[in-house]
Amino acid sequence: MLLLFRNTGTAMCMLLEAFRDMPFMLSRRHRHDVLHQQFLTAIKSLGVITVVALFTGMILALQTGLELRRFGQEVYIGSAVTVVMLREMGPFMTALIIAASVGSAMAAQIGTMTVSEEIAALEVMAIKPVRYLVTPRLLAMIMMMPLVTIYTNIIGVVGGAVVGHTQLGVSITAYMDNATQFAENKDLYVGLLKSILFGIIIATVACHQGFATTQGAVGVGQATRRTVVVSFLVILTVGYMVTRLFYQ
């Protein structure tokens, strides 16, 4: 318990320091490090995100569609899929995938650096490891998570439309009409707010676990595993709280 508090404390300190150093890393000379992280966060994950988002949308459409068909209301899959994607599944699925792929990679990379004295080398060069390593990752997450989430939403809604069209006989226009009737801008933007929070969570947990790595390769493995577990848990709780806050 004490350990939990302490870890949370150090993670928060690290987060604050990373926020403070944002202007530095955004200066012309260091922008490129941020860009590199953006590339890793977003572009490299697009493949797996596409597949997952497509099937999430398809599954949502199929399951709700089969239920709704009993009442002859298949056309409501448009709103069901869109609202669920925008509010919950989009940000949530994106966060899980990014945590599992990008987050764990971050933890592994920083963990390896810790055990191979690279972090120590940065410290001796008086280069703040948080500024140099955490800030660009945090910035990239904050900027790219919402964008990737929008992408997930689009792909998910398209997936739903495809299933609606082929399996449930709901025309694309009926699907879109229904979707736009019930989905609100609030759904979209609350979802995006969530995704930004999730991005901050992933970057913080991954970097914190990376820095806390001890004991060589075994430690790196542990840091990676913990990153995924801890970020999932925090994402779930924070996701619930945000939903609670905006949809009482």
């Binding site: 572009i43 964008l147 992408y151 801008n185």
Partner: peptide, 27 residues
């Protein structure tokens, strides 16, 4: 770097375009 810049930029541009589009549809 240049290919990375192009890809990240293109992605951002497309997504922001889509965001604007959705905002108009949903309002």
């Amino acid at each position: 770097d240049i290919s990375m810049e192009v890809m990240v930029g293109a992605f951002m541009f497309m997504i922001l375009l889509a965001l604007g589009f959705f905002t108009i549809i949903l309002s």
